[in-house]
Amino acid sequence: MGEWWTAAAAIAGTIAVYAASKRAYRGLPVPLMLPIVTGTIFIILFLLVSGIPYSVYMNGGQWIESLLGPAVVALACPLYEQRHLLKRYLLPILSGIGTGAVIGVVSGLAFTAAAGASKEWTAAVLPKSVTTPVAMDITTTLGGDAPLAAMFVMVAGIGGVVVHARVMNVVGVTDPVAKGIGMGSAAHAIGTAKSLENSETEGAVSSVAMTVSAVIVAFLAPLAGNLFL
C-alpha cells in the first residue's frame, strides 16, 4: 500500500515538475531553460533536500521511463513522413550523416582514451550525438550508466545549438539542407527544435538526420565498443 502511494506521488510530481518547467521555458526560451535541464535540477534538489532515496522515487519513475521504448519506436512516424527529402537528396544526406556519425564515435573514442577514462565513462560518451532515449539504450548495452549518457547528450545538444551559426560560417555552409544535417547529426532533438525556428527545410532535414544518425550510431557504437573497450 505504502509503495503504491509513493509511486503515484512520484509520477504526479514528475508530471507537475515537467509542466512547470515547460511553462518556464515558454517564458524564457533559451537552451539552459529547456525543461530537461530545469526539471532535472529541480527533481535532484528535491530528492537531496527531502532525503528521499532515488530508488524510492524510481518506484514511480520507472513507469514514466517505461514509455521511452515506445517513444523511440514512434520516431519511425516523422521519418516516414519526410521520406521525400531522403529520396530527393539520398546521397548527400546519407554521406553527411554517415560522416558525422563516424567522426562523432571516433573522436569520442580518441578523447576518452586520451583522458584515460574507464570503460563506463567511454560507454556514456560514445552515443552523445544521438537522441537521449537511444543514447541511453546504447550506453546500457555497452555496460555504462544511462544517466551519465543523458548528461553528455544534453551537453552536445545545448552546445550544438549555441555554436551552430558560427560553425556554419567557419565551414562556409549556406544551404539549408546541409545546415540541417549538421544540426540533427550533432545536436539531435534539441538542435532540431532550433532548426525549425531557422527554416522549415532546415528543421525537416534536421529531424531526418537525428533519426537516421540514431540508427547508424546504434550499429556503429557497439561495434567500436566491442573492438576497443
Binding site: 514528475t14 515537467y18 532535472t40 535532484i44 532515488y54 522515487y57 519513475g61 517513444a71 532515449p133 544517466p147
Partner: peptide
Amino acid sequence: PLLFLPVTA
C-alpha cells in the same frame, strides 16, 4: 523530456 526526467534525475 518528461519520459527521461526520471533517468536524468
